[in-house]
């Protein structure tokens, strides 16, 4: 009986640790990770503590009711930000807390959520091009600048997708994508397209800015998860530095000094 209780508790703790790791990997804030995990732990009758670290999550089981004390560690996945998975995992936590699903069904649904497909590459490409062009407009660009930015984004974003799919380092990916996007949009300066070529150049790389990591970093700061806040902030800063370097390299090679 003791072993059966222990193995069941062990399975539940492993599930919790996996759940927390997936939530971190999909870009949830630390507050959400700890809240959701605590909610599920309460529903499953497990007394545990969750430690959220920049690259790992650790679930510490207190060791009562015949179960041994244990620590379950999971490496956080870097599968990319997914608000879809975030929403599904949050809904799963409420379904477990409200008793709508039992543990085996929760595990089955969790496995299904893990297989959630990301937004289609073509769909993202078709949406991000006009988005960056709209961004150019918000900064005061004219229609020629918007068209330039649209083309530059449609050239740089597939490069980013390809390099990420090939498993290239994300920093190198950002640098290359920013270089080519900036270089193509610099055509507005070189060939005299439109009246706002400087805005075209400045906004051509904005699709690469890691906005969600910055927002998450400040959210974690407010929730007093300073370690994770700093980690996310540094990740975002490094990526911003890489895209700036790509932008500067593009401008330097083309002989433009528009700072």
């Amino acid at each position: 009986m003791k072993m059966q209780n222990s193995s069941t508790i062990s399975e539940k703790c492993a599930f919790l640790a996996d759940y927390a790791s997936w939530l971190w990997g999909c870009g949830a804030t630390c507050a959400r990770i700890t809240k959701n995990t605590a909610r599920i732990a309460r529903a499953l009758g497990i007394d545990c503590e969750l430690t959220v670290m920049p690259s790992h999550v650790e679930l510490s089981l207190a060791g009562a009711d015949g179960a041994d004390a244990a620590v379950y560690t999971r490496r956080t996945g870097h599968s990319g930000i997914s608000f879809d998975i975030n929403a599904r995992l949050s809904r799963l936590s409420w379904e477990i807390a409200d008793g709508l699903v039992d543990f085996p069904e929760a595990v089955r649904r969790f496995d299904e959520i893990k297989r959630t497909r990301p937004t289609g590459q073509w769909e993202v490409l078709l949406l991000v091009g006009p988005a960056n062009a709209a961004f150019c407009r918000l900064f005061g660009g004219d229609w020629a600048a918007m068209l330039t930015v649209l083309v530059a984004t449609l050239a740089g974003y597939p490069l980013k997708q390809t390099m990420i799919a090939d498993g290239r380092d994300l920093r190198l990916t950002f640098l290359c994508a920013a270089f080519f996007s900036a270089a193509i949009s610099a055509g507005a300066w070189i060939f005299g397209w439109g009246d706002t070529p400087d805005i075209a150049l400045a906004t051509s790389v904005l699709y690469l800015i890691p906005g969600v990591p910055y927002i998450n970093a400040v959210s974690d700061l407010m929730a007093k998860h300073y370690l994770c806040a700093f980690s996310r902030f540094m990740d975002a800063c490094v990526l911003t530095a890489c895209l700036s370097a790509g932008l500067c390299a593009g401008m330097f090679i083309l002989g433009l000094e528009k700072f």
């Binding site: 870009g27 990319g80 930000i81 997914s82 608000f83 879809d84 998975i85 929403a87 990301p118 937004t119 769909e123 993202v124 949406l127 991000v128 091009g129 006009p130 988005a131 960056n132 709209a134 961004f135 407009r137 918000l138 699709y207 906005g211 969600v212």
Partner: peptide
């Protein structure tokens, strides 16, 4: 301003795999 911000939000949210209903 609002219209172009809306277009920008849809595009940038698709990068973050936001559910379509959102």
């Amino acid at each position: 301003d609002g219209l172009f911000a809306a277009i920008a939000a849809i595009g940038f949210s698709s990068i973050s795999n936001t559910p379509r209903r959102a």
